[in-house]
Structures are given as structure tokens and as C-alpha cells.
Amino acid sequence: MIVIVDYDTGNTLNVKKALDYLAIDNQISADPTVIMAANGLILPGVGAFKTAMNALQQRHLVSVIQAFAATGKPLLGICLGMQLLFDRSEEFGETQGLELIPGKVVAIPTKAGISIPHMGWNTNTLTQNDPFATGFANQATYFVHSYYVQTKSAYTLATTDYGQPLTSIVRRQNILGTQFHPEKSGAIGLAGLRRFKEMTDHATLSSD
């Protein structure tokens, strides 16, 4: 069972629809017991960092997500959900994140020919070999964001070029994130969600 964290953010149901389409057993929940029992956790997210962190705090989900990450079972953050995995964001003043991967979230620099938000299909360039990221190599996926993650190259699996390289896929052990929306990236995105599901199967087998 994959659980999608329920904190009333935009793309939650679209992530569910993609998993349903792939016939992957899933549930949207904010219940700590249900979340901790999941084989894999997906943290969706659309909108502003601070609003999202506030919503997670109000539902007492910050420590639950951190506890889930500590189990070693796979956790995938999508779009804003990926940004939330990091230490802090500079969006609307500084806001603390989930601190699961070292790094921070800053605004995409504006310059000529670079419209903000970065919206549309952009190509991923792999910077490390990784079973989750491999299927995205040189493939275009759908991005919508105005802020991006600055992190160490050790945690960066792929970047995308938008006036400069922007972090597009991250991983620290069992914690993964995509800046793009796999649930809106056609067959390439769906295949990525299926690979995440397979990771949850393996994690379950190895912990048994």
C-alpha cells in the first residue's frame, strides 16, 4: 500500500488517479497509523512553501513524515513536496522545511528569455546513475515552479536546463523527490511512479 499524504494540496487527487490507473494499491490519508504502516509514502504539493508547511504542522504531520523517513521505507516528494524535504525555503521570508535532505529552496533567477514560473515540458539530464532516475534520462517531463532546490551534487540525480541547471530529481537513501509532476508527464511519468512502487516492494521484502 502506498499512502499519499493528505494535507489539502492541489495535486493530491491527480497523484491518486495516476496510481489508480496503474492499478497500484493506494490511499490518501493524514492518519499517523495509516502513514506509518505504508510501504511507501508520497508527499504531493502545489503552491507556496510556507502555506504547505503550516498545513502539515496543523495536521501534526511533520514528525509523522520524519518518522516514516527514518524507517528506511521509500518516500517520494513531488514538486513542492520535493522542496519540503529540504532544510528551508526563502519563499516569502525564510521557512523551515522537513530537514530530510540538506539544502535550501531559492527563487529561480529572472533574466532575459526566462519567464517565471518555469512552466512546461523540459528535458532531464542525469548527473548520477540511479534505478529510479534512469527512466527519466533525456526525457521531457512537466514542470511548474518558481523556486528551485540548491543541494549538494551527492543528492542530485538529475537537472534540467532553464537558463541554468535546475535540480529536477533528488535522492538521499530512501528519500526521493521530483521537481516535475510525474502524474502529469504522460507515459514517462507513469513509468516513474511504477518504479517507485517497485522500490516499495523491495523495501518491504528486505525489512521482512
Binding site: 495516476a18 490507473y21 512537466y142 502529469k184 508527464s185 504522460g186
Partner: peptide, 8 residues
């Protein structure tokens, strides 16, 4: 449509 089609 959103159940069957995965693009914006």
C-alpha cells in the same frame, strides 16, 4: 478525463 489522461 483526468482519470485516463496524464498531462496538464
Amino acid at each position: 478525463v483526468a482519470e485516463q489522461v496524464f498531462m496538464p
